[in-house]
Simulated assay, not measured.
Amino acid sequence: MQDRTESRLDRIRGSAPPRRHDARTIAALTRNPGCARRGVLDAAGVDKDLLARQVGFPAAFGQSRFAIVRGNVFEARVKADGCVDLLRMFHECLGSEPGGTEPGGTAAGEPLLVTGDAEPDETLAARHERTVAALRTASGTDRPVLITHPLLRLAVGGQDVHLEPDLVLVRPGGLFHVVEIKSFPVIDGQAEGEKVAAAAIQAAVYVLALRRLLGRPDAVSHDVVLVCPRDFSNAPMATRIDVRRQLLVLDHQLARLSAVDALVAALPPDLTFDLAPGPDGRPTRPAAELAAGLSRLDARYTPDCLSMCELAFRCRHEAAGRTAALGPSVREELGGVETVAEVLELAAGTRAPTADQAEAADRLRTTARMYAAGLAAGPATEHAAGDRGPTP
């Protein structure tokens, strides 16, 4: 079954190289687990950004080149001089002193820096094995260990996904902390809430992957370390973030994800989104064929998709006129009412509700009466207020 699923996913992707998952795509996938379209395309490794452009719905999505360069420069600054500044910040943030003493009086030796970056011609499997060996060795040492860019794995929808956190800190005694380095600033002790939330869920992905790899959930702390620039400088500062809530959501949503093999089995055998380029560098498959293929994959659009999925504008176009496009709260309140046209007809009383729509229809009619009464009273109230003249 696994080989058959892999073969089908290869056909869906075509001859173009696969796009790799990362913590951002997993976080986005778990925020909308009912979207079969994203589930299949991500599992197959289809380039959704290129696909969106080919079908005429390009989206300004992802980090700018400037942001990527800025992030790389800041990460290099944080890791400079053997991560001396980073180790000092861990002492301030976590209450442990590398090279000194852990809370409770446990002696700590000199910190050890281990690189998990890819070596020349190293396969992903070999790099992952090296990461596992480094993690297991680090858990048994009596001194702090910093492992840069370890390669982790996490099963998502029945498929193994490789992940690469910035850093993992292993404290004496074998307690692991995930470290995320971000280039957005913390100004006067405050950072942009949406960016912090995104960093927290990405860090939770790494924590979950690390716990499953080690097989000991208690060995990986739910306290992750977020390192950002302080104010308007390039000087780093560390903040501890509790990701227990994000871990609960992530674990629950990953469990709810439909297995990829079940999704693929229901698709036409000839379905493909081959984006292999021709001599001019542009994909050779016609846009009409790609658009027709997308229509075969059920999408579950919500307004949140605009900030996390490359195909959001295409899906929003398809969802125009449907209540689901107005957000989860509207969809839940209007359960059984699929289109905006039905909403207006039920509110006006010109459409007889079905048994499933009866409760929603009653709310809609009540809201319409209140709205109409407010409109009728509005001008009169304003006129009466005007007749009173100026207040003495």
Rank of each mutant, 00 (worst) to 15 (best):
R24D: 11
E102G: 09
G327C: 05
A138G: 03
D166Q: 07
D42Q: 13
Q246C: 07
Y301M: 05
L50T: 10
R171S: 08
K182R: 13
L210W: 02
L326W: 06
L169I: 01
D223C: 07
G116F: 00
V227N: 07
V156D: 06
D85V: 07
L214N: 07
G173N: 08
R351G: 01
V55K: 07
L112W: 10
E180I: 01
C228N: 10
V340P: 00
P98A: 12
L41Q: 05
T339Y: 01
R244I: 01
A27G: 15
G95T: 06
A52T: 03
T367P: 00
R130E: 00
P328S: 13
D166N: 11
A299T: 09
V224T: 09
R70L: 10
A255V: 01
P172G: 10
G14Y: 07
E110V: 08
V161G: 00
P165A: 08
L124A: 03
R351P: 00
P286V: 11
L9W: 03
A59N: 11
A276K: 06
Q2D: 11
T115S: 15
T272V: 07
I187W: 09
T5V: 11
V207F: 02
P17S: 15
D242G: 03
P269F: 08
S15V: 08
V186M: 15
V170N: 04
A361R: 02
E119R: 06
